[in-house]
């Protein structure tokens, strides 16, 4: 089971990284979403894996529970990463509508960024 989870995290990370290296805003957002999945599972897994031990206290005496803390942290992380994705989508959409282009690399800006050589004393 551990291998299953670890390899899933790895696969999601790899796909996410590949997508954030693309040149279009939409692909990058998809990549970030995949990376969020990977990070969330990774954090969740830091509580180690257990089956049939939800962290809901049992009224029937002694029982084993999985680690609740990572779950609480990941729960908010999921919601926050949604917020982040939403903001990014909005920014990307705005950029596209304003500039008619959703490329992310500032190729022209880089050429203009030549330092004014000799401008200093």
């Amino acid at each position: 089971m551990e291998f299953i989870v670890a390899s899933s995290v790895g696969a999601l990370t790899a796909a996410g990284i590949y997508l954030i290296l693309r040149l279009r805003a939409f692909s990058t957002i998809l990549g970030l979403a995949l990376l969020s999945y990977a990070v969330n599972i990774f954090l969740f897994a830091s509580g180690r894996l257990s089956i049939d031990m939800p962290p809901v206290l049992s009224p029937y005496g002694e029982a084993n529970y999985t680690d609740p803390l990572p779950q609480a942290l990941v729960l908010t992380a999921i919601v926050i990463s949604f917020g982040m994705t939403a903001v990014l989508v909005m920014v990307a959409l705005g950029a596209y509508l304003e500039s008619d282009d959703d490329r992310i690399d500032m190729a022209e800006a880089a050429e203009n960024a030549e330092y004014g050589a000799g401008g200093r004393e």
Binding site: E2, V5, A6, G10, A11, A14, A15, G16, F42
Partner: peptide
């Protein structure tokens, strides 16, 4: 991407 993914996956497996 594959190097990064493999690294993260291996890390996860190690601590799991």
């Amino acid at each position: 991407a594959i190097a990064g993914g493999a690294g993260v996956g291996a890390l996860a497996l190690m601590f799991l």
